[in-house]
Design a protein around this nucleic acid. Sequence first.
RNA 1: GCCCGAGUGGUGGAACUGGUAUACACGCACGACUUAAAAUCGUGUCCCUUACAGGAUGUGGGUUCGAUUCCCACCUCGGGCACCA
Length: 948
Amino acid sequence: MNPYDHDKIEKKWQKVWESKKPNKVKEDPQKKKFFALIEFPYPSGDGLHVGHIRSNTAMDIIARKRRREGYNVLYPIGWDAFGLPTENYAIKTGIQPSVVTKNNTDTFRRQLKALGFSFDWSREVNTTDPKYYKWTQWIFLQFLKKGLAYKKKLTINWCPKDLIGLANEEVIDGCCERCGTKVEQKEKEQWMLAITKYADRLDNDLDETDFLEKIKIQQRNWIGKSEGAEIEFPIKGSEKKIKVYTTRPDTLFGVTYVVLAPGHTLIDEFINKADNTIEVAQYIKTVREKDDEERTNAKTAKTGVELKGIRAINPVNNEEVPIWIADYVLADYGTGAVMAVPAHDERDFEFAKRYSLDVKQVIAPYFENTTDLALRKDLPLVEREIIHAIVKNPKTNKFLVIKWKEHNWQSFVTGGMEKGEDIVDAARREVLEESGYKNLKHINMPGSAWQVHSAFFAKHKNENRYMKARGILFELENEEKIGVSPEEQGKHDLMWIDEKEVGPFLTYENQRLVWNYLEGNSKTLYSGFGKLVNSSEFSGKDSESIKKEITQFAGGQWVTKFKLRDWIFSRQRYWGEPIPVVHCIKCGIVPIPEKNLPVELPKVKNYAPTENGESPLAAIEKWVNTKCPTCKGTAKRETDTMPNWAGSSWYYLRYADPSNKKVFADAKNLKYWTPVDWYNGGMEHTTLHLLYSRFWHKFLFDLGLVPTSEPYKKRTSHGLILAEGGEKMSKSKGNVINPDSIIKTVGADALRIHEMFMGPFDQAIAWDTNTIAGSRRFIERIWKLQEKIGTTADEKLEVVVHKTIKKVSEDIEEMKFNTAISAMMIAVNDFEKSEKISRGHYEILVQLLAPFAPHVSEELWAHLGNKTSVHASVWPMFDPKKLTESTVTMTVQVNGKMRGTIECAVYTDDATVEKMALDKPEIAKWTKDLSVKKVIIIKNKLINIVVG
RNA sequence: GCCCGAGUGGUGGAACUGGUAUACACGCACGACUUAAAAUCGUGUCCCUUACAGGAUGUGGGUUCGAUUCCCACCUCGGGCACCA
């Protein structure tokens, strides 16, 4: 037998596949289809990344398995080739981007072919091909027609190095995603796509998909759906009203001021009427000068200014409240104005504290006992008001607490209020009665006297109690005290403890909340739901369920809002699809007629953007100056191009019919192939590409151009491959792994196995070149097993083979490739131990290996005398009856500790198993002199003998 | 701060629905083959211990005959979002 020569074998079969094209597919209505998709690569100058190989191999394995299960499989590939790196390279070298792209795609194609991926190469697409981007432009015109593409002047994130406008998604920590330069703000007219019109459907329709849960969650968070109320606050002495958006209309009675975002339109109207016009103008100016990061960073202190002399009226109680302008309120979310409820919102609280604004409690936290003291249904609820007197000794900085002798609980000095009694007087009285201290100074502060409610069954009185508790803070003026009655003394012990010990000392959560209120920081204010207080007729109601009712009472409306913003679709760059419109002096914006598409990129000499931020296209007069398609008058072409997310938003549709000249894809082909059955890609594309393409797809669906409302049935994601130190791989760090050299030394099959075996597919992992040896060895051992093929009837191997079929088949479906390979390794180990192995068993091993290592499997398959491809053979099935041998090893535990094993026939009855176990000397040792209390038997697995 | 995910040998990692923790692989050690080395094959390899017995899945509790797996609290790391009212 010849030694395993990977290079010879891989080249041989790649040549065969190149000429026979086994993976080229046709639409075949007789056959069920399977559309397997990976994110088409950006052909960078660095060549193929080991990360590409990981995700491509995974999908290749799935595609190859599906073919052998009888599916008509479409597994296509293409190039997402517009983009900045190519353009920057062109700027530097003067080589045309189209030429750079051609060179890079050639390299990628060669590398992908060297790895044996089963792509249908006849369907290759390239976003920079005019025959392709003709349809990207065509789809844009449909957006324009429907009013979903529009121009808008806005301050954009501007990268001063790349000279390009960036979408919010492309700004990371205030810096350009590509080059890391600090982003600036700049006013510019931009093309927008109205993705927000689809926000609700993009959220809801996730329910229909089989995306990984974390992907759904991340998209939902990004879309940011929220329901709440829009409520109008009239401005006193004016017809104007301030409309605010709130998710907490239940806190309306706690509003102590309203806030406008600095860009709010009402400011212009009222700034001159305010008593402090200059101060307000000054504030708005400073806000405008702040950069995006400073303005939106929650950590920086909140600033603001009051519109003095102008007041808003709270519609629920006609209370007048001040109006503030503050930059912690965002102009482009909700209504650009909020009602501030500092008692129940962290941000409002922080702001109110800084500017000494009122804080008013309207929600009392509510605790209902549901266990030992649950309310009795048949009894009435008796309301009681109580106080907790919190006494501090300023000399020692300690607090007075009580340990109750009878009740087994610990608290502050506490007691009920008497009829008509003032809360502070009540608290003084309780302190006097229980401790004897007579000189107390009441400390009034926000949070003191705030209520906490609770309900429980009072056993000793046989009644249901509804308790309203308040905390009152005192400081001892001196330690003078009167004698306490012996009766009181018998009930409890008094103690003085440190501030930090108070929280843990208290038995009940409601007292702990009262205590927290007094700390007076935003961490301890209560922002949850509870019972309304200080809310006129709504007092006492449950705050969560009353939201819509209060909204109605305030004359407001229940609405839905989203965090998602419209998509900035313009780029001032060369290497992108030209936006196919002209600007005509007479007619305005006029779309290029569809029959004149594509608007091709002209060749230019200089690819650098102009200094004023225009695309380099603007400098080509011959191209820019054109005629208006409508009036034939002079017009100028739009010089903005599309972002590189455009071409990738619909590429999977083009695969269905890649060379169609009449439509972007024939309806029949789309009907057959779409939706994509399984799409694997990176988590980094969850909120950009994946969301954008779902949006485009839904739009095309609404036009009746695609058959389904969702493009992808199932979406999974791979973990990143990091460099050996755990850092990101990058050319600048010099830690990039070149697949070419690995293929040369150990072969493409070994590389594929290695990448699948290195760890769980969905988790990030650091590259380790040393361990490839194991994968290479694995292939060599299978190769050598050929020598053992002979006639044998080994029952043990039969079980091993069927177990392996089951494990490999199931693991591929769950993308657990590492354990699938380990199952095959176990089989190989068992095969090696055997004198001979049967041809049938070996064939199955080769068939299971085929999707992972397609070249060597094909070679071994041919060695076995097969005339057709292993990749066309039917996927092996396992026989459930052959998964277990006739005897099993059962674990014997005594009191849960493993003490030995027994060999017995499968499904031996429990009594026999128990006897066998107890009879074994090494088990008897542990049960001697003890009585068997219980025996637990798990069939064919385990027996646990409980003795005592 | 909020939302996901993860913490298991020297390393990557495995463990079905709660049932022998450490499969599989890398590395390492020893042995065989060899003049020698590489390659290959064999044996061993969680900790402590001569052995028996113990102990160990980030930490601390809980449920259970039995917990890597379920529950509670906490710590650490990775990813995403971050003034969205």
